[in-house]
Design a protein around this nucleic acid. Structure first.
Lengths: 340, 340
DNA sequence: AGAAATTACTTTACCGATAACTTAAATGTT
DNA sequence: AACATTTAAGTTATCGGTAAAGTAATTTCT
């Protein structure tokens, strides 16, 4: 079987020019309906697949989007990524996913690599409030959307959860236990979501007439092990009953493990809440009280925002670069189950 | 700041030819050490990033690898993908990850898209034993490695777990309960790993003198919900004590939920085993007995195999395409915890 | 009817990098 | 010194597609 991998092969097979074939495949009005059909049929018959590399090269823009995420092994991001991918694929885009593992230097390196790949845009979960990433993206003139976290509240285009509200709801809920000890196992302090959660936590305490004590907040928990270790340390110095709110379900699982190991019961001795509502835990006992986040919708929304940016850029002439930044803040939902 | 995005800009800035710059950056022996340093320094100073699209186009091969995985939201694959990505990135490759969601048609569509992207190679978790995917990859002349599953035992290059042995070990372990009822919540029947697990299950039963009854095997379980529903149905017709082995930890979690809802206890009433040893569950009570699979190593091994294929292809002249297929079968490890 | 416009194509140029080929100067050999 | 070889460049062609500019043939308009 002769290999048909180029427009040239199609053109020769049909006895027309390369441009005619190109225009026909791109539904250009220059080509008559009859010819168009003829060419499309032939292309299909010989299973022609256009060379995206050549096309990207010629057009100076690819249909590739870079996704820099802090941790793809977290089912939370797996859902977000799925939303992104499915939305982008409808528009003919593909994704290169990179894992920064919360490392800003890696994040910066990845942005450089994505620049080299001439990606059309980037969706980024910034590893911290470090402005270098934004600077690079602007410098390289790559449209971007931040997801789940922002670098600065009033800059950029982003899709986040209302973290302040999420933490506020959780803390208010825990306050109802009438117990003034509410520990907070928080995430990395440089990250916007962690900062907003802390703010929501403080607001709830204040409203409920509890005093904020910084030694009740543990910063820097990222995974189950951190949750487990932090909880163990808390249990060494504090006797239940008390409450615990966790930045993520992952942290919560580790904390629960430590609590149960000590022989305490949820929610009787310790009332505990997670955050994210990752799917697998809905089947695990004790069923975790958590904050439901619209993970898939966050992914979809950020992809849609990015596509908007890309399309507006197509239309606009050099003069009028309308810099409309959009901030989408999604509503959290408190899901009360068995641990509180 | 003047934009320096092309070799041409570097060449003009330095007063040398484009080719000289290209050769210097690629460490070609033509260029003198002095000039090379001069060019490299300048390129670094102005933060030149080579245009991979142009390079890929010219060289007719990209540094992009397609990964078609059946479900990236499963932490099992998240680990495998991480191993793949980290290994490939060392060799300068990037990854396009696509989710087939166990749908062969999507898988086939993706392979076509990857062909259009001119990927250098593909790592694939085939959604079934359907040979079309292999045919396409061969037809398109794309080097590929299968991971976690194969299409046919003696074909292709693949990295899998010894599923037969994994199921055998699990079933033998459960046989020791002296209870002749061992239910098996298995995966999709078209998938090699599910077939091999069934074979291992049968071998263990036979060795232990138990008879194989097909109504004790439930096929087609893919997630927690399937595990939950299947277990519920089993409990309607069967009274504990009995044993259950699950194709995955996900299925196991669903099954445990159903068992506990009925008020039965693990492992006293029901002894149950999962498979995969996904990280999050090591902190969940009751701690699941499972099969440890070297997920990261499977990813690394498949990436290394693919790179081998790519490099051998570079060296070999058209005549001698040495078709060495490699099959890597990794050893499973039984991790006995609290559910058995 | 003759000019203008439209249709349906073809020809040409080009995107950025690199491989193959060429050239000029420096160096080595007898 | 004459010629061969090596070194360090520069020139040219090219990958596959598409945008822009050209060109005949046909249709429309006044």
């Amino acid at each position: 079987m002769k290999r048909v991998t180029r427009l040239k092969d199609l053109a020769e097979g049909l006895g027309v020019s390369i441009t005619t074939v190109s225009k026909a495949l791109n539904d250009h009005p220059d080509i008559s309906a009859k010819r168009k059909k003829e060419i499309l049929d032939y292309a299909k018959e010989v299973n022609y697949i256009p060379n995206q590399v050549a096309r990207s090269f010629r057009q100076q823009r690819t249909k590739m989007i870079g996704i820099v995420i802090s941790d793809n092994s977290n089912p939370f991001y797996a859902r977000v990524i799925r939303g992104i991918e499915e939305t982008l694929s409808v528009h003919g885009y593909h994704c290169v996913v990179m894992n920064s593992h919360e490392d800003v230097d890696k994040e910066i390196q990845f942005i450089g690599e994505l620049r080299g790949l001439n990606v059309a845009g980037v969706i980024l979960t910034p590893a911290s409030g470090n402005k270098k990433s934004r600077e690079l993206l602007k410098n390289y003139d790559i449209p971007y959307v931040l997801v789940n976290r922002y670098i600065e509240r009033d800059e950029d285009t982003y899709v986040v959860l209302d973290d302040e509200q999420a933490a506020y709801m959780t803390a208010r809920h825990l306050c109802s236990y009438g117990n003034d000890k509410i520990f907070f196992l928080n995430f990395l302090p440089g990250v916007s979501s962690a900062q907003n959660r802390l703010a929501g936590y403080k607001r709830a305490l204040k409203e409920c007439g509890f005093s904020y004590e910084s030694n009740m907040v543990v910063s820097g928990c990222t995974n189950q092990t951190d949750g487990y270790e932090s909880m163990k340390r808390i249990l060494e110095k504090n006797k239940p009953p008390f409450c615990v709110m966790c930045y993520s379900d992952y942290i919560a699982i580790g904390a629960i493990c430590a609590i149960q190991e000590r022989g305490f019961h949820l929610p009787h001795d310790v009332a505990l809440c997670g955050n994210d509502d990752i799917g697998i835990l809905s089947f695990v006992k004790p069923r975790l009280t958590t904050i439901g986040a619209p993970k898939l919708r966050m992914g979809i929304a950020s992809a849609e925002l990015l596509i908007e940016l890309l399309e507006s850029r197509q239309e606009e002439t050099e003069e009028e670069i309308k810099k409309e930044e959009k901030h989408i803040v999604m509503k959290p939902e408190l899901i009360i189950r068995e641990t509180s």
